[in-house]
């Protein structure tokens, strides 16, 4: 018999995607997918990470204004930094996530500037800077909330 926790385990990532889209619809210019990718990296296998990242890339690229590549650069850097940082830090430690969040918000600022430059687009610098700082706080707080929910509902079925 399928238990409630098993249903939750199956629906966790689809629900995460839907709620992240809702949050992005409600809050302009903010990324609500990055924290989910981070949690997926920490708790799930490579297959799920690739699938989740692919869906996130398609959503961000399809609804953004840059030519294809900006989200690959951003999420690729996040995954690369995580894999690199895992060799030096405990992957689940809040200090590591804090450091990663800071680096990710810096990457966001510079990658957006670079992609805009490549396409000859003008971006409002002070707003981009503000949004990069906001991204840091959103990334941290969302990761904390997601980790809590994940632990409560999915710990028994997760890989780790």
């Amino acid at each position: 018999m399928i238990s409630f926790k098993n249903i939750l385990a199956r629906l966790f990532w689809p629900l995460f995607l839907v709620i992240a889209v809702w949050l992005q619809l409600l809050f302009p210019g903010v990324d609500f997918f990055a924290a989910g990718i981070m949690l997926c990296l920490q708790r799930e296998g490579a297959g799920k990470v690739v699938l989740l990242t692919l869906v996130c890339v398609l959503i961000q690229e399809g609804s953004g204004f840059f030519a294809f590549g900006a989200s690959i650069l951003r999420y690729g850097s996040l995954i690369g930094l995580f894999l690199l940082g895992r060799k030096f830090f405990e992957a689940g430690s809040p200090a590591f996530i804090l450091l990663l969040g800071m680096m990710f918000s810096g990457i966001h600022f510079f990658s957006m500037k670079t992609m805009a430059g490549l396409q000859d687009l003008v971006v409002v610098d002070h707003r981009l800077l503000m949004e990069s700082v906001l991204l840091f706080f959103v990334f941290l707080s969302e990761w904390l909330v997601l980790t809590k929910i994940y632990r409560l509902s999915l710990a028994h079925v997760s890989r780790s």
Partner: peptide
């Protein structure tokens, strides 16, 4: 109007 500046790539 569904949203205003959807996502982090909506720099415009």
């Amino acid at each position: 109007v569904v949203s205003y500046r959807f996502g982090p790539h909506a720099a415009v």
